[in-house]
Design a protein around this nucleic acid. Structure first.
Lengths: 193, 193
DNA sequence: TTATTTTTGTATTGATTGGTACAAAAATAA
DNA sequence: TTATTTTTGTACCAATCAATACAAAAATAA
């Protein structure tokens, strides 16, 4: 391939941009924020992302979807998939304060984008629905294999877990504290047993 | 009192501003948005709110706190306060689509302001904590009066309800639909019984 | 009436916004 | 080497941002 070598790979730019978007959200993140954190100049930046700020944000969101898809793969090969999901919830309590306050970038996006950008809103909503589907499927299997005794419709319990996830996204900011969060996580996970 | 009469009362300005903030959030709402929706000119606007955009937002938030305080008053004189809270949750399902997508301005603010404005973030967090306290107190009374049989620590159940409220704030955007929401609301309220 | 006070409307500010233009740099292909 | 291609860095752009300056308007007080 011809041309001057790239100093800033797409992944590097998206990764760094994601960090800022995760903290400040889409609207509050300025282009100069992105240029500063990535180290790229605006010429280089727009050469990479013709769609500008919105394109990078979308790619940052898609990167989170891919991380989720990878988790789903691990679930599929796990002997106890429901335990893996429960462990994931419990591990949230272990995060440090800054991570609590950042929350989940997908849930954040659903809240922020409602009347700001329809396309980005839908993208984020669809990811949450995929996560919900994963919850539902896993719970259904756990019911079939008699791993859990709760016989409530798995669709309702899956929706219960995604609601908990989104609630946790705010609770973590109210109480960015391991003890408080773990107590609530254990109480809510006990429903799925 | 001397001086030219006010065409735009504080309450009118705050009320109209609140509508825009509720939909678009703090950052995405521009001053010209506010001037357009209120009908005021920038001179008049800044004469009323020396603190500019931030002052109006704070007053819009405080107005929501006052609406909550009023609900708390009604709770205090109610013969069945827990039922009033449950009815409130159920009434959420009845809202129309636009209301679902707007969600709760306080929960929205907690999510948006994390790394944007510490003062506004704290203000919103404190309101949610007050709501949680109301949940906890009401549940404690219902346990004492043997209105409910669940003997879990009321602090945990109060925190459970505020987590549900915040989760609902995102679930409503995923499924702005009466049936889906009511099903989830009934399932989660059943825990408090 | 005249002086004073307050709100209103308009013009305008400087700073920041997202985004372009363009030439130099730095690689490969011919 | 020379031509071509792509990235980079800098200068710059129009539009919008939140906010101010200021005089006319419209009331009350003296």
């Amino acid at each position: 391939m011809r041309g001057r070598p790239t100093r800033h790979s797409d992944d590097h730019l998206i990764g760094k941009a994601q960090e800022v978007f995760w903290k400040k959200g889409y609207t509050a993140t300025s282009l100069s924020d992105l240029l500063q954190v990535t180290g790229a100049g605006s010429g280089s930046f727009y050469n990479t992302f013709k769609g500008g700020k919105k394109e990078v944000f979308k790619k940052a969101i898609i990167q989170r979807r891919e991380a989720f898809d990878q988790f789903k793969q691990e679930l599929n090969t796990s002997p106890a998939p429901l335990d893996l999901i429960k462990s994931f919830f419990r591990s949230i309590a272990e995060a440090d304060k800054k991570e609590h306050i950042k929350g989940c970038i997908i849930a954040n996006t659903v809240v922020e984008m409602s009347f700001v950008d329809e396309e980005l809103e839908l993208e984020a909503v669809n990811i949450l629905k995929d996560v919900e589907q994963m919850f539902t499927d896993t719970i259904r299997k756990a019911q079939t294999s008699k791993t859990i005794s709760n016989r409530t419709d798995p669709a309702i319990l899956g929706r219960y877990l995604i609601t908990f996830w989104c609630g946790l996204n705010t609770l973590r900011r109210m109480y960015p504290d391991k003890g408080a969060l773990l107590q609530q996580i254990e109480m809510q996970l006990a429903v799925i047993s």
